[in-house]
Computed example of a mutant assay.
Amino acid sequence: MSIADKLKQLNITLPPVATPAAAYVPFVRTGNLVFISGHIARKDGKPWVGQLGKTMGTEEGKAAARAIAVDLMGTLAAAVGDLDKVRRIVKLMSLVNSTPDFTEQHLVTNGASELFGQVFGDKGAHARSAFGVAQIPMGACVEIELIAEVG
């Protein structure tokens, strides 16, 4: 089954590449690697604002991370033209806007990791880091960047 078919089966429509909010590009391809700049969580087209452990719980944060994964796939598709060219999701780095005592950043990030596994199968298994941070641009609750290997 193609990646497009899997996305259709999951009722996912990939968005166009978002315009960067500062002085950077959405992705850089070098050799067989594509580096996708950090994407913040968005809800209804606006930054998904919140702080885990204060105004949001783990499950809502996980939903935000899943939404970022969809946006990341949209950018990855723009970078390579066809997601079937992806050989491997190599690494995610996740920043979770959280209180000092919130310790479930890894569970929040599972929202993205699990979706990459559903869509890409074994090629979606990746290395990752999940950090708690004091703030993310525009007050967003989660930001994730991605590295992928492509053919």
Rank of each mutant, 00 (worst) to 15 (best):
S2A: 04
A4R: 08
K8T: 07
L10E: 06
I12R: 06
T13Q: 06
L14M: 01
L14S: 05
P16W: 02
V17L: 11
P20Y: 08
A21E: 13
A22M: 09
A22H: 14
A23W: 05
R29Y: 08
R29I: 14
R29K: 15
R29P: 13
T30L: 10
G31V: 05
N32I: 12
V34P: 07
F35L: 08
F35S: 09
H39S: 12
D44F: 10
G45N: 01
Q51V: 14
M56T: 09
T58H: 06
E59Q: 10
E60C: 01
K62D: 03
K62Q: 06
A63E: 15
I68N: 04
V70P: 02
D71G: 12
L72V: 00
L72M: 01
M73S: 00
T75W: 04
V80P: 01
K85R: 15
M93E: 11
L95I: 06
V96T: 06
N97G: 09
P100Y: 00
F102E: 02
T103P: 08
E104Y: 03
H106E: 14
S113C: 13
F116E: 02
F116Q: 04
Q118I: 06
G121Y: 12
D122T: 11
K123Y: 11
A127H: 12
R128L: 13
S129P: 07
A130V: 06
A130E: 08
V133A: 04
Q135V: 14
C141F: 06
C141K: 03
E143W: 03
E143N: 07
G151D: 13
G151Q: 13
